[in-house]
Structure formats: structure tokens, C-alpha cells
Write a protein that binds this DNA or RNA. Structure first.
Lengths: 155, 155
DNA sequence: ATTGAATGGTTCAAAAAATGAAGTAAATCG
DNA sequence: CGATTTACTTCATTTTTTGAACCATTCAAT
């Protein structure tokens, strides 16, 4: 049965094959979020992951595909639990920068480690393949950041 | 600034780099779901994608990381809109198989095409790289299906 | 067979999460 | 300076998700 799915998939275009793999990996990652750190909601985990550096709330909103009021709520909650703090953006005093506290950094790094573990367990790739996959993933991410920012300002 | 993020990422372990790329791609995919097919909810899109072949509701629940009652609701809605039908599983008459209708197949194939387009636009990989990435993605997906099924029966 | 426990799915009320319209404060433009 | 736009907040409403009680079928052990 597995062979059937797999051989059918092999006939699809490479782009679709790629996306289906991405899909599967992402869901495994989500699954692992459910297991560790039970006191954080999904959305909170996502925000921590996105906060690899201080970011404006508006940037997060378009990054996380949601509206400002949702970001406010998530940030409130993470601030209350001591994972981040709001700091005025010196460039524009209307805007806030969300900055991880030490605790926030610790939890973020835990999430990152978990993500790495999930990849190792779920992918079944050997070391060489992992390195090659990572190289492409980095390229993809750079590309998305590049094309994504202008698109994020849509509407 | 982008260079800063990118060079920092380059210092992380390959597994984490890989996961961050996966993360970014998946979010782009979600974004595209928001744009096409406005009469389908997110969850409904996900269910259609998962239904590459008839599946039991329980299998979908563990696949989609949710509880049975959520699957019931989503299936009800997709059934009402003519995208799928319930058929008793002949193997076990307590269980239902969710089977896509012609319309459901059409929409699913549209979503698949959209996913492929997102990959092409978002990844920025050339043809060779795309083929290589796809090969690994297929391997990963196979591995996840293999290791995932026993894990799915947890609890 | 018969009974008891487990499994697959449904119902529905309650909880949680996401939204969007109206509001405040700061920046920008003419 | 005043008008407009931008960045975020508030909060009431809507949407989504959950979980406990439930029905029907299967499985296991007599």
C-alpha cells in the first residue's frame, strides 16, 4: 500500500513531490510541538521560532499570515509568561520590537533543537544527503525572504 | 540585514537549516491556500490534500494531528459541498472511508498544482536542483509514512 | 452463541483562537 | 499647521477546536 502511494507520487512533477515532502515534514514538526513545552500554544511556538532576532509586530503579522490583533494577543501572552518584552522601535516610535528575554531565548533554542531532532528522526537521510538538503533549504529560505518581504506588504 | 540572518543560519546544524527552510516553504503554501478557493477553510484544504486515496476518518485524525470530532465536522462540511462522500469500510463496518467525488478530485488536483507553483516561485531552485530536492523529499515522505504509522496509533 | 471490553465515529455544549471595526498615538505629506 | 497614513490595541463577535457522553460494531474470552 505504501509502495502504491510512493510509486504514484514518483510520477508527479518534481515540484509537487517536493511540496508533499515539505508538507509531511512540517506536520511532524507540529506534532513534536504538541509534545514538548505544554504550556505554550501553537501560535506561541511559531512566534518564538520567528523571533530569531527582534522583529516588529507588523512584520510578524505578515510573516505569520495573520492580522495585527492576533499578534497583539500572542505577544501579550508571551510577555506575561516572561518569554519576550516589548521595546519601542527607535526608528519609529509607533512600532514595537518584540525582543526575546533570556528565558525566551532558552525556550526558542529548545524548539530549534527539537526541530533538528525531528528532522533527523523523520527524514531518514544520511549525513551527506542531510548536508545537501540543508544547502538547498538555506537557498530556498533566502529566496523566500527576498521575494516574501515585498509580497508581505500586499493589501 | 537579510545577509545577517542568512549567515547566522549558515552556522547552525544542517538539520536545523533544513527545518527552517521547510518551515518557510510550508508557510508560503498556506499563504497560497488563503488566496485560491475562498470557499474552503484551511482545514478543508488540508483534508483534501491528505485524501490522495480513500482514508478512514481515524487515520485522518492522527494524520492531521486532531481529534475525531474535528474530522467529523470537516468531513460533514466537505460532504455538504459535494467534495467527498462517506462509504462504509468493508473491512470494518464501524469505520467510514472518505472518498473524493469528481469535484473533490478536481479541487484537490488544483490545490496540488498550486502547491507546485508555490514551490517553483518560492524556492528559486533551478531544474536540476529541483529534481534533486524532489528526490530527497520523496525519500523523506516515504520514511515518514513508514515511521509515522506506528507512532500515529499512540494513545 | 453470550457477555464484556475496546474501537470507530457522532453529537453538542463549552472553551479557545482568530477576526475585524473602532480607537489611540506617532509619523508623514502637502 | 492640519489632514492622512501607519502601527498597534481593544473588545465584542465569529469561527474553530475540543472533550465528554453516546451509539454501533467488532473482538476476545468464555
Amino acid at each position: 500500500m505504501t509502495d502504491d502511494i510512493s510509486s504514484r507520487l514518483a510520477r508527479l512533477s518534481p515540484e509537487i513531490q517536493a511540496m508533499m515532502g515539505v508538507y509531511a515534514l512540517y506536520w511532524k514538526l507540529e506534532e513534536s510541538f504538541d509534545q514538548i513545552e505544554t504550556d505554550l500554544s501553537h501560535q506561541e511556538c511559531h512566534m518564538l521560532i520567528k523571533l530569531d532576532e527582534p522583529k516588529r509586530m507588523g512584520v510578524l503579522a505578515s510573516d505569520m499570515l495573520t492580522v495585527p490583533s492576533t499578534i497583539t494577543a500572542t505577544a501579550d501572552s508571551l510577555e506575561a509568561s516572561g518569554h519576550l518584552s516589548r521595546q519601542r522601535d527607535p526608528e519609529d516610535r509607533r512600532a514595537w520590537l518584540l525582543v526575546l528575554t533570556e528565558r525566551g531565548k532558552r525556550v526558542r533554542s529548545m524548539l530549534e533543537t527539537a526541530a533538528g531532532d525531528v528532522f533527523r528522526r523523520a527524514s531518514g537521510l544520511n549525513d551527506m544527503e542531510t548536508i545537501e538538503f540543508a544547502r538547498m533549504a538555506r537557498k530556498i529560505r533566502d529566496n523566500i525572504i527576498e521575494i516574501g518581504i515585498p509580497e508581505g506588504l500586499k493589501k
